[in-house]
Write a protein that binds this DNA or RNA. Structure first.
Lengths: 187, 187
DNA sequence: ACCTGAACACCGTTCAAGT
DNA sequence: ACCTGAACACCGTTCAAGT
């Protein structure tokens, strides 16, 4: 445990949410990981909804920052595009977790509205980046890019979910290959 | 409530699992819907794991039967293939639910092993049908068909999940269109 | 055969109270 | 400021008892 309980809670909660979702976020286990008591979490976050909101907000902010740096540091936009599926591979590598946003999308009915907003922001960030990069890489025309970006995003989300259900990361790679072969992703 | 409590429990549990997942299946609410007490469910199913197993088994059996009838009743295999995305649209039409198998795939870590087996069987049924139908429709060669079938399945699963997160069924249709435009699904 | 009340051990959540 | 004990509501499960 570090000197900053709030940051420790956020970090631990992110991992729990990626493995067990919103319903699986439990304050007793979370507190134990951080080294405080469950009730103490409520000093830092007024409710489970607020904690989940903070986690999801941090999550899309980090994603946005990473995607920008990926684009900046790639020789060509097409290179960044080719590496996009990697970002969703990491969760699977990390103990067969999935995207926090995907898990919470499944639990949509049980999500407080404030959390829904942040979960949707993650999708928006990804789709906007894909649209921009598809156009820059001349893979799609400005007119087609939005639809193509959404199709790529949902395809990758589905691949991650399916790979999790088999606890098989090679299945993820195979599905991404399948998208390339079929023409959804650039070769 | 009908004359058959066991069937009523299965039917109610299916809907709950499609909206709230395995963790969201609780015997008290379920019993109330069926018109009996929570303890009575244990007369029909020895445990929550066994109930979920029965629900998931019934789910893939029904899917298998429907897909066979779809193929039999279609003029050409390609027609059946074109109608495949409809089967995942129905859950969204039904109060923004999703595939039971997708929800439980997200909750993989929290699933008893017996349930996992039945959840995976649903995927197997769908992928096997797609493979067979892709070959029959000459959309994919026997060699490519397995990979293509899995890519289509995961793509549709992702589209359904993304549409749920916006409670927007037109988004599902748009994503399926995007798959057709990109070449993942036959036009 | 089918169902129930009551109880058990447990868990997430809350808040008044501690330091 | 930061944390906690203790209570509360709830859940899966059991079982003796009811019809």
């Amino acid at each position: 445990m570090s000197a900053n309980a709030r940051e420790d809670i956020l970090a631990a909660a992110k991992l729990v949410a990626q493995a067990h979702g919103y319903a699986g976020l439990n304050f007793r286990d979370l507190a134990e990981q951080v080294g405080i008591k469950a009730a103490s979490i409520y000093y830092h976050f007024p409710s489970k909804a607020e904690l989940a909101t903070a986690v999801a907000k941090r999550y899309w902010e980090d994603a946005a920052a990473y995607l920008e740096s990926l684009l900046q540091n790639s020789p060509k936009p097409l290179d960044a595009l080719r590496r996009y599926p990697e970002t969703f591979r990491w969760a699977l590598e990390n103990d067969n977790r999935i995207c926090l946003c995907s898990f919470m999308s499944a639990q949509f009915d049980d999500l407080p509205d404030v959390v829904k907003t942040e979960v949707q922001a993650f999708t928006d960030v990804n789709v906007a980046w894909l649209r921009k990069t598809l156009v820059a890489a001349k893979v799609a025309s400005p007119k087609e890019a939005e639809k193509r970006a959404r199709a790529i995003y949902s395809g990758i989300v589905g691949a991650q979910l399916m790979a999790r259900s088999r606890a098989d990361i090679s299945l993820y790679d195979s599905l991404i290959d399948g998208y390339r072969a079929a023409g959804l992703l650039p070769a």
